[in-house]
């Protein structure tokens, strides 16, 4: 049986739900090898968090260059592993780092690449949803290793436990991949809420919050949701950029997306229209976001959200 690489993805030192989703998709194509790129001395700790998903083997590469030289150093390592092990395919999470790494590896291994897949078939056909959610496309890589970046939260993860073997490999990163130097890194503040792209529910606030996210956060917390924001809200400095949903922010595909005081500009829609259910609260009945709403409330978010929060909390107790 052929081997399929996945690049294990970690959030706060824990293997992410996305990693299990990648493994689930990869197992349809072949036997799954999870690649862990770790800082020196942390490989075993990270590997120990990777407990679920149909994974047959784990490769751990420890190297200080991953932290000090950015995307290209990691991409160089993955390219070298592909040259060593000749996997059929490589599946990577579709975020900024994952897509850049995939692109770099595609060049180094002369392989085709498909980004932002929402599904992957057993013959490695990738499904993408494009043009603002209007069109579904199936495509296939015909050259080299099949490289696909997969959008988080789109594939139902097989979370069964595995008994994967672990192999440590040491690599020397190429000089050309070490030309940029990272002098300091500041991880995003998570604030105890779920990671935006992995969350089952996302509650987002826009310009309509007028800078006061308390009602949005309270509703999010009643639902155990992540908090998102429109660009108007992040540009105004009301919420960190790492929470921006949209074309130049994150793409989310939760079970439920709640848009509060967001008009529904095309760039915002680009990041949320593959959500399964969409709820809108907006005081303008003509706001374009209502076109996407499964349930819409025409009203003031500061009046509607507290009632809804109380309603959700009441049902829990």
């Amino acid at each position: 049986m052929s081997t399929v690489f996945i690049l294990a993805d970690f959030v706060n030192g824990q293997a992410s739900k996305t990693t299990t989703e990648l493994a689930t998709a990869a197992a349809r194509i072949g036997e799954v090898t999870a690649v862990i790129l770790a800082p020196v001395g942390q490989g075993a700790t990270l590997a120990a968090t990777l407990t679920s998903g149909p994974i047959s083997s784990i490769i751990v590469v420890e190297n200080a260059d991953f932290q000090s030289h950015g995307v290209s150093a990691s991409a160089d390592a993955v390219s070298q592993l592909i040259a060593q092990k000749s996997p059929t395919a490589l599946l990577v999470a579709s975020h900024a780092f994952g897509k850049e790494l995939a692109g770099y590896v595609a060049v180094k291994t002369d392989s085709g690449i498909i980004t932002d897949a929402v599904d992957v078939g057993s013959d490695a056909t990738a499904t993408q949803v494009i043009f603002g959610g209007s069109t579904t496309v199936h495509s296939k890589v015909s050259n080299g290793t099949i490289i696909i970046t997969v959008r988080p939260n789109c594939i139902t993860a097989d979370t069964s436990a595995h008994a994967a073997s672990v192999e440590s490999i040491s690599l020397t990163i190429s000089d050309s991949a070490k030309k940029a130097t990272v002098s300091s890194s500041q991880p995003p503040l998570q604030g105890g809420r779920p990671e935006l792209t992995e969350a089952n529910i996302v509650v987002s606030g826009g310009r309509g919050t007028n800078g006061d996210f308390a009602a949005v956060e309270a509703f999010a917390d009643s639902l155990g949701a992540a908090v998102g924001a429109s660009r108007a809200a992040t540009d105004a400095g009301w919420y960190p950029h790492s929470h921006q949903v949209g074309q130049t922010g994150k793409t989310v595909s939760p079970q439920l997306y709640v848009a509060c005081g967001i008009s529904g500009a095309i760039q915002h829609r680009a990041g949320m229209q593959t959500s399964k259910a969409i709820v809108v609260i907006n005081k303008d009945p003509e706001a374009p976001i209502f076109e996407l709403a499964d349930f819409g409330v025409i009203g003031d978010l500061f009046a509607v959200l507290p009632v809804a929060t109380e309603g959700v909390n009441a049902r829990k107790s």
């Binding site: 579904t136 495509s139 499964d294 349930f295 819409g296 009203g299």
Partner: peptide
């Protein structure tokens, strides 16, 4: 090209939802 489009389909438009005034 290193990859090929096999097919593409228009997705059905999102079913109209419920809209209530608060």
């Amino acid at each position: 090209a290193w990859s090929q489009v096999i097919d593409s389909q228009l997705r059905p438009p999102r079913a109209a939802g419920v809209k209530v005034s608060d």
